[in-house]
Structures are given as C-alpha cells and as structure tokens.
Design a protein around this nucleic acid. Structure first.
Lengths: 225, 225
DNA sequence: AACATAATTTTTGTATGCAATTTACCTTTA
DNA sequence: TAAAGGTAAATTGCATACAAAAATTATGTT
C-alpha cells in the first residue's frame, strides 16, 4: 500500500531526513518523487496547515522549528491533552484494549532491555496511540495526534541519539506505571502520571539538546563558513 | 488589507454561504475569485488539513459535516480545551487583559439586550479568543482555535437563527460568570464553568437542530425532489 | 415504466511554461 | 578584510492544457 505523497513528504521530516529549519525545494522534491511541482506544492501546503512545516510567501517552506519557549509550551499543552486521553481511557478501555496494553508493556520491557532505540520510538507511538483510541473521542484523538505531530521532529531526534540509551528505562517505567493506573481504572492517577511523563520528556529533550549544542532554535549552518 | 485566498475560502464556510455537505467546485471558485484553479486547489488542501473541509480523492471536496456522535465528541473535547485555557488565563491574566475582559462583558450586556445576534457571535469569538491568549501558551491557543474552527459551521449557524433570540441571555450570563472567576483568579472555578458553558452550547445546538429538522448529518437535497 | 447500459458532460489530477521575486554570487570600494 | 552593490541564477506563484476518472444524461431493452 503506497503512501500518499503527503505522507511520504511528512516522513522525510518525521524520520529525520529533513530537520527543523531545513528548506523544502519544490524542484528537488518533485524530481525525487518523480512528479511535477504541482502535487508537491499541494502536499507542502497541507503539511503547512498541519503545522509540521512553515510556509513563508515567496520564500521556500521550511521545517517548523521551535525555540525553547515554544518547545516548553508545546509540551505543556501536550501534557494536558495526553493526560485527558489517559484519564478517559482508564474509564473507557474495553477488554481487548486492556489485553493489548498489557502486551505492549511486556514487549516494551523487552525492547528496553535490548536497548533498541528505533523499536522504542515505535513503541512510544503505539502506547500513546492506544490511549488516544481508548479515550473514545474522535476529536480528542485528532487533537492529540496533531499536537504530537508538531513536536515529533524533536522527540524523534531523542530516540536516535546513542547517548539516550542510558535513559531508555525511564520512559518505559513511566509507561508501565501509567498502564497500571489505566488498567485499574484510576483516571485521575493515569492523567497525573501522564502529565508527569510528558514533563519528564521535555526535560530529557532540553538536557540532550543543551549537551549536544544542537539546541532548538540554533541557527542553521547554511553554507556560511 | 486583503485576506488571503485561503481565508476568503474559509469565510465562505464560516459565514455560512457554504454549509456542511456542500461541494466545492474548483472551476466555479476559481472563476468567482478571479484566479486559476491552481491556487484554489492549494487553499482547499490547506482547509482540508485544518479539518474544515473533507477531501476525497478524485471527488469534489465537501464542507466537513459531523453526525450527532461526532458533534457531541467535538464539544466534549472543546469543553476540556477551553476549560484549560480559562483555568490558566485566570492565573496568568495581566492588567490590560483584565480591563479588556471587563469591557467585553459590558459590551456583551448591551448586545444581548438589543438582541443583535450577529454582534453576539463576534462577541463570542472575542471572549474565547481573549482567554486563549490569556493562557500564555502558543500551542494551547493553536489547539483551541483549530478545534473551534472545525465546529464553527455549526455553532455559527445557531447565531443566525431568529429563534435563538430567546436564549441569547444564557451564553452571556455564563460568559459573565466565567469572567468573574477569571478576574478573581479562581482557575478551577473558571475551568469548571467553562466546561459547563460548552456543554450547554452543545445542548442548544442539538435542540435547535432537532426542531428545525436541519440536523447534522442530514442528507443534503441535491436536486433530487 | 423500470432498469441496465452506453454516450456525453463535468470535474479532478498533473505536467508544463512563464513572469515575478528572492537568493546566491561576484565585483567593487572603503 | 569587510561591507555594499549589482548581476545572474535559482525559486516561487500562477495560468493553461490535457488526460483520466466520476457524474450525468441519453438510449435501448425487457
């Protein structure tokens, strides 16, 4: 099942080939995907409306980048939204979802032990996706995923760093705790734990970006030596 | 300051000229706005990504329509998001915003007395917009406005109905109560009142749509007598 | 008259070309 | 060497054209 052009383009950003601040050259992208500029432009506009890239009239579109303040606000907002999903999921989960969640945590345990960062990233998406579905609210799910999408270029970068190996256990343990609260039906606790989980993720992100000097908002080296 | 094409197109939907379910003919729109189909298509794609219209491959795009369940879920989600904004605004409002809020409520009082539904709709937008800003979180504001945008074709319809005159006082009073909580700095109360306010809005919407039989999800009469 | 099928029109998807603007590069000057 | 200016190249915005698919109308059969 071939992805849509829009998804293929998004993947360039989501999988890290294009990083925040990078320009999107319509000609080159058209050539790369073997189509004309017209469909490329349409895909770019869509991703622009999704907030994944930034569209500036008469100038190249660029991958959306956040400064420290924006990143912190984004995580604060996401924390609240994910907390909402978790709290509702705790109350509305059905039996098959409970089974799936349990299985997910077990698999995650394994992945964490093997320090497979790539699998851990996928697992992270699945875990949160399961809670988004469990909230049984289409709009809430949409909002959660749109929010998550916008910061993905940053959070995904974390999982690609070798130095993140050491901290891989923390998110897993937090997921396990949240899952427990969800399975017990304790919405308030699940929500609170989720809020904390997202807050921790922000701290990890900030820490690693400070260390590597690849900080958000850092001016891109564009040929200027 | 001329609006962008995207905004002009959105206005067709937001101001009620195009209703949920209506098709967007690229040719006619291009002719209407005096441009070619290319920029029209780009605008349509953007609005599609925003969730205001629905894009179906190889078929005309249509204004997004919600069935009863979706509408109810949308309002539930919006209630939580708006409550978040209100709760934060109560704590983070600055002095000029407090003044502006007080002035807004005073004006609203007047508008309600005059039963000016059109002005009341604008006032509604301003009231909520002020709280979105007051939350001091760019992402939260974005999420709130995107959510609000999606259901606007429905909520705006309410304000255009003559029969809504009788109920015009209720939203105003609720706004006033919320404003009071915000000005006192009581975030929890502001949030709770906001949640209630949005829930009431849904009920009004459902009630009026049932009465007029112009229910959401109703199949559009398209030439078929 | 009802239904199925074929012809016709409408509408979308994409490629291509050109004008307008921005960006990059190179020269000149302090 | 750094700044400033001007020219050339690259890039976006938009119009137009045409093929493919969908919607509509017309036609024929039972």
């Amino acid at each position: 099942m071939p992805h849509t052009l829009r998804q293929q383009l998004a993947d360039l950003v989501l999988l890290g080939e294009l990083k925040p601040g990078d320009r999107l050259d319509e000609h080159k992208l058209a050539e790369r995907f073997g189509v004309s500029r017209t469909p490329i432009r349409e895909a770019i506009r869509q991703l622009g409306a999704s907030g994944l890239i930034e569209i500036r009239p008469r100038r190249s579109a660029v991958v959306r980048s956040f400064d420290r303040t924006e990143l912190s606000e984004a995580f604060e907002a996401m924390g609240e939204i994910e907390a909402l999903c978790a709290a509702r999921a705790a109350v509305r989960f059905n039996e098959s979802e409970r089974l799936r969640l349990r299985a997910l945590i077990a698999t995650s345990e394994d992945i964490t032990a093997r320090k497979d960062r790539s699998a851990a990233l996928e697992m992270d998406f699945e875990f949160h996706g399961l809670l988004h579905d469990g909230a049984r609210n289409w709009m809430l799910k949409t909002v959660a995923e749109e929010t998550r999408l916008k910061i993905t270029p940053y959070s995904a970068a974390l999982f690609t760093m070798e130095s993140y190996d050491a901290d891989l256990g923390r998110p897993h343990n937090q997921h396990a705790e949240i899952a427990e609260a969800v399975l017990v039906g304790d919405g308030d606790r699940a929500g609170a734990l989720m809020r904390e989980h997202i807050a921790q993720a922000l701290i990890s992100l900030q820490t690693f970006f400070e260390e590597t000097a690849a900080q958000p908002d850092a001016p891109k080296a564009k040929g200027r030596t």
